[in-house]
Each structure stands twice: as C-alpha cells, then as structure tokens.
C-alpha cells in the first residue's frame, strides 16, 4: 500500500527533480550506479539524438520557445552551481586546521582546535565526542578572532590529532593542512619529542 520513495543521494530530491538543482551531472552518475533501472527511465531517451528531443518537446506543453529558455536557464544554473562547488572545495583545501596545546598551571594543559568551521562539522557534537573519548571536559568557545574553537582539557594532543586526520580523511579532504602547535612548558622533557612548531600535511 505504502510507497517507499527513492531519493537522490547527491541532492536529496526524488531523482526526477535532479535536473532542477544544478547538480545534475553528479546526480546522474550516482543514479546510473545505484539504480540503473530508474536511470534508464529518466535519462535514456535524453541521451539519444534528435528523435528523443522532439519527443520530449511534444510531451511538454509549454512550447518550444519556453522549453528552450528553460533549458538554457537550467544549464546556467548548473554552471553556477559547479563554480560554487569548486570554490568551496578550493576554500576547504586552502584552509588549515590548527591544533594547539597550551600550558595551564603546573602539570596541566589544554588543547584548542580551531579552523574547523569551514568543514561543516557540528562543533558541539564533536566537543561531546571528545569529552567522552578522552574522559575530560570539552567545550566550544570563541577565540580571539571571534571564531569558534573546541577546547579540550588535558594533555590529549596526539589523540586529537589522530582523530582530526581520520575525520578529514572520511570527508575526502585528505590534503587539508593540519598544523600542530605546541606551546612548550618549561620543564617537561618527555613532550619534547612531539614539541616545537611543526606543520605537516597528513599522509
């Protein structure tokens, strides 16, 4: 009785509306791989030559001229969308994540992570994850530049670094720079190995 609707994994709409989102190219690729049957119904006719095009025109009622205009507008939208995506990716790649260890009193330290806001990560959630993962306090705070950063209490620099790398890799953003800054304390030789300013990109 009930239908179980199919939604596009790229743009989240029912596949027949993909053409209006400007992400059509990626939607098509997804649909072809995931649901070949539906793909055939929706797009097979289009890829064929003149025949199919005229058939499509006959189907639609709004007249040749308006159909053409619509098509043009859609193409424009698609180009725009592509440009935007490119830009966003560029921005993501050029930004960097800073993980910083700061000394507090005596043996205590805290780790601050900033520069995550570009990656559409839910900061509060991540803070919660860190809190339970390292069994410490963890909060989201605004830093000097009025940007959000995550502050983890305790000396968990290595763990955080590993986790961030894994997180970025999962998002397919391997090449994002992760900078580890260690504000050294006076007497603590055993952290010297990981200490010093070092910036490196993940493997």
């Amino acid at each position: 009785m009930l239908r179980s609707p199919l939604y596009c994994a790229v743009c989240s709409l029912p596949p027949e509306y993909c053409e209006f989102t400007g992400k059509l190219k990626r939607c098509k690729v997804w649909l072809r791989d995931a649901h070949p049957a539906t793909y055939k119904i929706l797009y097979d006719a289009e890829d064929d030559s003149v025949d199919a095009v005229s058939g499509k025109l006959a189907e639609s009622s709004i007249g040749e001229e308006r159909e053409e205009k619509l098509e043009k507008d859609l193409l424009k939208l698609q180009a725009k969308q592509e440009n935007r995506e490119q830009r966003e990716l560029q921005m993501k790649l050029s930004s960097k994540v800073v993980i910083k260890r700061e000394a507090r009193t005596k043996k205590k330290s805290l780790v601050a992570i900033s520069g995550l806001e570009v990656f559409e990560i839910d900061m509060k959630k991540l803070a919660k994850t860190f809190a339970s993962k390292f069994a410490t306090g963890c909060s989201v705070a605004k830093n000097v530049e009025k940007k959000e950063e995550i502050i983890v209490q305790g000396d968990v620099l290595e763990g955080v670094e590993k986790y961030i790398h894994a997180l970025l890799e999962e998002k397919g953003l391997k090449d994002v720079k992760v900078e580890v800054v260690d504000v050294k304390k006076k007497k603590k030789p055993d952290t010297a190995a990981a200490g010093g300013d070092q910036s490196k990109s993940s493997k």
Binding site: L2, Y17, T21, S61, L70
Partner: peptide, 22 residues
C-alpha cells in the same frame, strides 16, 4: 506525501513553473 500521495487534494503545474516553485 511521497509515501502515500493519493490521499490529498492535488493540483498540477506546468513544466515552466517547476523552477520557480523549487
């Protein structure tokens, strides 16, 4: 609606309007 489309009052628009509706 997508799960059970038949139960609601429905109207239909032409192809030219889809873009604006979305």
């Amino acid at each position: 609606v997508h799960k059970f489309p038949d139960a609601y009052p429905t109207v239909q628009v032409d192809r030219g309007a889809i873009k604006f509706v979305l």
